[in-house]
Computed example of a mutant assay.
Amino acid sequence: MTTGTLITVAPTGAESAKTEVPALPVTLDELLLTAKECEALGAAVIHVHIRDGDARPTLDLGRLRETVAALRESTDLVVQLSTGGAVTDPEADRLAVLDAAPEMASCTMGTVNFGDDVFLNRWEFVVELHTRMQDRGVVPEYEIFDLGHLTALRRLLDRYGLPAGGHVHVDLVMGVPGGMPATTEALVACRQALRDLPAGTTFSATGIGRGTIPVILAALSTGGHLRVGMEDTVSYAKGRPVESNMQLVARAVSFAQLAQRPPLTPAQTRDLLGLAPRS
């Protein structure tokens, strides 16, 4: 495991409404400002969901391409697009996200109950997403919502080979109602299961809502990396709404520094994940 900490910011997501969370960055200008602020604090990757003109989640390819281009123009962050979108998005639209040519994209390793909804990820869809990323040189972040998803990932890699860049990186999404809990015990169980994956596999961890801080501490103490942002929590503390993604990134950076694992730069992150250097 690297001695530094890869910090990913997930600033928007597809669940919260702008009317209920006014600080949520939903326009391109708001997203770019957030990206610049969070990069300056220590974020190296930005996990991107986008919204339409009415602030509703969308996978519109034109908007995705514009967003990727603008983030590359304005920051050095690794741009990682979500292929999950909203739980109602069809598979064809989710696959088409790769046409926006991001450096990275998410690849969720199985179906999970998502609150009152179902986040459907059929095996055939997962295989198609994985192999398309291989063909296009897009590096996946394998999203893990439950322990069995790690077993599915091992099956995927055994049958279809390593991802583009040759490095396996997963994100443990913890605390979604219907998925694994945001606890130290669950993270340690996943950490043990990671030993069955290729040597050098790295992981980040995401704590949803009140699980944010316990997951940050557990991840740092077990050699993991961090994902934070308003996609995953809109409360900074009990009774205190998040004012900006900067707050969440700054807190993650402070914990990483306290653990003597300072934030990795975007260049160091590209090297870790097998991404080509920025030209």
Rank of each mutant, 00 (worst) to 15 (best):
Q192K: 13
Q192N: 08
A218C: 12
T212A: 15
V215K: 07
M174Q: 15
Q192I: 09
T201I: 07
M180Y: 00
G239Y: 14
T184C: 09
P163C: 05
I216Q: 12
A250W: 10
D171L: 11
S204W: 09
L187M: 15
G175N: 04
G178W: 00
S244I: 04
G229Q: 04
Y160A: 09
R227G: 05
F203K: 02
G239F: 13
L162K: 01
G175E: 02
G229T: 07
A164P: 03
I208A: 10
E231Q: 11
A182K: 01
A219W: 10
T222G: 01
G224K: 06
A237K: 12
V168E: 02
G211K: 03
A182Q: 03
A250N: 12
R227E: 11
D232L: 12
M230A: 12
A205E: 07
E185D: 15
Q247T: 11
V188C: 02
P181N: 06
T184M: 09
T212F: 11
P198N: 07
I213R: 14
V173T: 02
L172G: 01
K238D: 15
D196Y: 11
M230E: 09
Y236V: 10
T183W: 13
E231Y: 08
T233E: 05
R227L: 10
I216V: 14
G229I: 05
G165Q: 06
T233V: 12
T183K: 12
L220F: 10
A199H: 04
D196T: 11
T233M: 01
G209E: 00
G207D: 05
G209V: 01
D171P: 00
I213E: 13
R191W: 10
G178Q: 02
G229L: 02
A205D: 08
I208V: 15
V215A: 06
L162H: 00
V249K: 11
T184Q: 13
S244W: 08
A164L: 09
S221H: 07
V188Q: 08
G165L: 09
P198H: 04
L172H: 00
L226P: 06
E231R: 05
